[in-house]
């Protein structure tokens, strides 16, 4: 079988919630174990072992929570934008479920990034909150998550709710490059990015390695959380089908 044929088959299989439910169990466990390991090592290393900053002292350590949550909250939004596109064009059921299942995680991570940013800002900047381009665009991201959550609750029919959310998710992705480049395009109080794709990080490895572990760990956490939520959503929405009824009948005596 050629590569294109494999990809095509995989794409069609993704359209089947039942197939996804059946293959995803081991993946969820794998990601959960990986997340636990990475986050445990990264957090202990970052908070207890890594050196402190020459200017900020120990308050610098909040970076080990702030940066991973901020990065993952934007990635989750991009994933929802992609799911929105797939839903609008291909009408794939699973895309709608991803759109619904990823919101709580992304919303919590955005709130956590804003909160840790405030806690970090007070001792270093001298203020809990400032209205600069980075902080404001991040607040807009939180409101987009609120909007997606509320919109889903407001429309009772799944199909209509899905399409409305898909449009909002897709249009909202315009905010992501604004968040990313806000610190380069405008004068802000917020410092430029810690991790850049094109350059080495501007701190020694004993400082950025634990941070990298935490970033990878939080991605694994998201993957495990998303798969778990997807499986629940599949059971809920497909509860009328034969395979779900048989699955439940087989399990409960």
């Amino acid at each position: 079988m050629t590569v294109t044929e494999t990809l095509k088959r995989w794409w069609h299989q993704l359209g089947s919630p039942r197939w996804f439910y059946e293959i995803s169990g081991p993946w969820q466990t794998g990601f959960a174990v990986l997340a636990l390991l990475l986050l445990a090592i990264g957090t202990v290393w970052g908070l207890a072992i890594a050196p402190m900053d020459y200017q900020q002292g120990n308050s610098f350590r909040i970076i080990y929570v702030h940066v991973p949550t901020a990065i993952v909250s934007q990635t989750v939004y991009m994933l929802m934008g992609a799911a929105g596109l797939v839903l609008l064009v291909w009408r794939m059921k699973l895309a709608d479920m991803v759109l619904a299942a990823a919101v709580p995680f992304g919303m919590s991570m955005t709130a956590l990034a804003l909160f840790t940013g405030a806690v970090w800002g007070k001792p270093t900047w001298g203020a809990w909150w400032v209205w600069d381009a980075r902080t404001t665009s991040m607040l807009v991201l939180l409101f987009l998550y609120f909007g997606l959550y509320a919109l889903r609750q407001a429309i009772p029919r799944n199909e209509a709710a899905g399409r409305a959310c898909a449009v909002l998710a897709l249009v909202g992705t315009v905010n992501i490059p604004i968040i990313k480049y806000s610190v380069d395009w405008w004068l802000t109080l917020h410092q430029p990015a810690t991790f850049k794709l094109t350059e080495a990080p501007s701190m020694p490895p004993e400082m950025w390695l634990p941070l990298l572990l935490n970033v990878l760990g939080i991605y694994c956490f998201f993957a495990a959380n998303l798969i778990g939520r997807l499986k629940l959503t599949i059971l809920e929405r497909e509860s009328g089908t034969r395979w779900v009824r048989e699955l439940i009948a087989g399990r409960s005596p």
């Binding site: 050196p51 900053d53 900020q56 970076i63 900047w125 203020a127 410092q191 430029p192 020694p204 004993e206």
Partner: peptide, 18 residues
């Protein structure tokens, strides 16, 4: 009426900074 400090992304251990 208010003074805010800005820092950059060049974090460094104290020994290295010295």
């Amino acid at each position: 009426s208010q003074v805010l400090a800005k820092h950059d992304e060049n974090y460094m251990p104290p020994e290295l900074a010295e």
